[in-house]
Design a protein around this nucleic acid. Structure first.
Lengths: 218, 218
DNA sequence: CCTCTTTTTATGGTATACCTTAATTTTTAG
DNA sequence: CTAAAAATTAAGGTATACCATAAAAAGAGG
């Protein structure tokens, strides 16, 4: 396994988790990774040969058991490094992702286990996302998105997707985990959600609201 | 800069430090990296184009200032990770090298600085080798090798080269930093050095004695 | 069922970093 | 000065992982 393959598996895992469907469309993979459809197809064939994915042309890809295991290991490494970088090295919220992205590919099983213990067996990363256990179990975090909140609701941020632009955006506006957002209403035919937070009004598009998960208080 | 280039620069730095000469023979690089002379030549031309080395065919290679800076940064990362892996994660002496080898290529400047502070600004790695400062200064450690010791001397181990087989060998025989080795004599026309340590007699070849540095008490 | 869109395949190309085998050049040692 | 040894270059090859362009196949909707 190398960097490229690991990235594909991780991305596949994330896409199938986000869309809550096992099968992932190659076009979506292509967009997510920023590669052409042609390149993605080539790589999927290689991953298929290695039994990491199950690829049925015209019907999407699915991680095999082996592929899933590897994907989860990468996610685990990523989130554990994020905890380390934040808790121990005090890196900024938005820098975490990029650094963890590099370290995750350079971490052996042994180091991962020791790191896990050293960090006090954390259950979630800094962005609130669950850290898979060593045997690959993933505890599902909050699934309710901010996009689903209605005017009058108070939305409490529990986890956000580890997506660089989103993190930058939220950090700049002081919206962290635990933040309480009062949903004021919708704008632009429902595309934008208007929320209040600490006397500030924010207009949030779907690429933001669909990536934030939490609880609703009515 | 990528993994391959970084490895070349690091190896060049180590070879020129070990031989105490600026210029490195491509044949030595070739042996150290385990690549053919042809491959090494190709790569040296690329590194030369990028101004990382100064390559005069038939007269060896030399790191440029830029190449030196990068090499030292890799050494710094390597040794800091070793300290982390040993002090914080409690990895075994011999496992350190391999793991640090991977992490060093995945570490940004920022993380390196924070890690340095977090570890308490260590001066040497676990094998006793100096950790270059952020601005590239390297404090020279012990330079006297065990190979230079004479019968009757007591050799105190201060640092050993970060060379996997050597570390495995020493760990198996409980020879750690600070170990006091009594030099008994030579064998095989001087190829082998006979030393005593904790009631054990060891016969050490040059690939071992030339890689161990320390002080001599007469 | 047929068109349109999407997806896939086919071909050929790029860069990196290795390799082998075989010349050729340069250095070095006698 | 010259032959042997060492270093370099030449030529062609491999695998990985991208790319573009274009053709072909399959699916989806009316």
């Amino acid at each position: 396994m190398n960097r490229a393959e690991e990235d594909y598996l991780k991305q596949l895992y994330e896409l199938s988790t986000n869309t809550q469907s096992e099968r992932v469309k190659t076009a979506d993979l292509s967009t997510a990774l920023g590669h052409t459809a042609q390149s993605v197809n080539e790589m999927l064939k290689r991953l298929s040969d290695k039994n990491l994915v199950n690829y049925t042309p015209y019907h999407g890809v699915r991680l095999t058991k082996k592929g899933h295991q590897n994907a989860v290991r990468m996610i685990r490494a990523h989130r554990l490094w994020e905890v380390f970088l934040s808790d121990k090295l005090d890196l900024s919220w938005e820098a975490l992702h990029e650094e963890a992205e590099k370290l995750e590919h350079a971490t052996s099983e042994v180091v991962l286990d020791k790191l896990y213990t050293y960090l006090g067996k954390p259950k979630t990363c800094i962005h609130g996302n669950p850290i898979p256990t060593a045997d690959g179990q993933v505890v599902q975090g909050a699934t309710l998105t901010l996009a689903q909140a209605e005017p009058g609701d108070v939305f409490i941020v529990r986890r956000v997707q580890d997506h660089a632009p989103l993190l930058t955006y939220l950090q700049a506006r002081d919206i962290a985990l635990g933040a309480r957002l009062s949903v004021v209403g919708h704008e632009s035919l429902g595309d934008t959600l208007v929320v209040k937070h600490q006397n500030q009004t924010h207009r949030l598009g779907q690429s933001i609201t669909a990536r934030m998960f939490g609880d609703i208080e009515t």
